[in-house]
Simulated scan of single mutants.
Amino acid sequence: MQTPTSPAHTADLPQHVGSVAQLEELLSRPTPPALAGLRQLDGDLVILGVSGKMGPTLARMAVRGLEQLGLPHKVYGVARFSQPAVQAELEAAGGIPVACDLLDRAALARLPTSRHVIFMAGQKFGTTGNQHMTWAINTHLPALVCERYSDAAIVAFSTGNVYPLTPVVEGGAQEHDDPQPVGEYAASCLGRERIFEYYSRTQGLRCAIMRLNYAVELRYGVLVDIAS
């Protein structure tokens, strides 16, 4: 199978990106591995916390991929949508936005039922002085979601912040390193993982945890910070 970094996949990428619209088209273009994953779906996809940095693009990729495969499944994007433009853009792209406060048990219960869930909800910015909300969103909410979608297969986004700080000369933390979170945000993220692990080990929840490191995009991330 061709990978996203193979010459066959990158040959049609432009040398320059001239607009946000062009960037979004490129980022949401379904890759062969994405299409292979979408082909395995037997129902609708629910993305919880869709309005963050990656969520809208991921939802658009899912919509485009399902259309390309000729599959009828819907893509629901769930968030509070404090920025109405994100909701409108998701709907224009073919997704189905659902405004919801995920900490509201009644609202969570009304969400579409699905056997395929991507969990992207979390709080990072604003932790200082608001630690109680960070812990509620990053640890209490996962428990609510695990109970609401107990029959689903869930991909839960996490962070490399659960690893200890390491000297630059050592090349960074490795996946087999024991977690040693520094600070309340990182500790709450490890708590999120443990909640999903608890439901997986005790209730048979099907779950995969993905730890992300260093967002890199043309609008934000390490390279943008350096260039600025």
Rank of each mutant, 00 (worst) to 15 (best):
M1I: 15
P4S: 07
T5N: 10
S6G: 11
H9Y: 12
A11K: 12
L13C: 07
V17H: 10
A21R: 11
L23R: 11
E25P: 11
P30H: 02
P30Q: 03
A36G: 15
G37P: 11
L38N: 10
R39K: 13
D44F: 00
L45Y: 03
L48C: 00
G49M: 01
V50C: 05
S51M: 00
S51H: 03
G52Q: 03
K53A: 15
K53D: 09
G55I: 05
L58V: 04
L58Q: 01
R60V: 12
R60T: 15
M61L: 13
G65P: 06
L66H: 07
E67N: 15
E67P: 04
A79M: 00
A79I: 01
A79G: 06
A79N: 01
F81N: 00
S82G: 15
A85Q: 14
Q87V: 13
A88K: 08
A92T: 06
A92M: 05
A92S: 13
G94K: 04
C100A: 14
C100G: 10
L102R: 00
L103I: 00
D104Q: 05
A107L: 02
R110M: 08
R110C: 10
L111F: 08
T113E: 13
S114F: 05
V117D: 10
V117H: 10
F119H: 09
M120S: 04
A121S: 15
G122L: 00
Q123W: 05
Q123M: 15
G126Q: 05
H132E: 14
H132T: 14
M133E: 15
T134P: 09
W135D: 11
I137F: 04
N138Q: 09
T139H: 04
P142F: 01
R148C: 04
R148D: 03
Y149Q: 04
S158V: 00
P164K: 06
T166I: 13
T166N: 05
V169F: 12
A173I: 03
A173W: 07
E175I: 00
E184M: 09
A186V: 06
S188V: 02
S188D: 03
E193N: 05
E193I: 07
I195P: 14
F196R: 02
Y198A: 13
R201K: 14
Q203K: 14
G204F: 10
C207Q: 07
A208D: 11
M210Q: 12
Y214V: 14
V216C: 14
V216Q: 13
V216L: 14
L218A: 13
Y220E: 14
L223V: 14
V224W: 09
V224I: 12
I226K: 11
A227M: 12
S228V: 11
S228A: 13
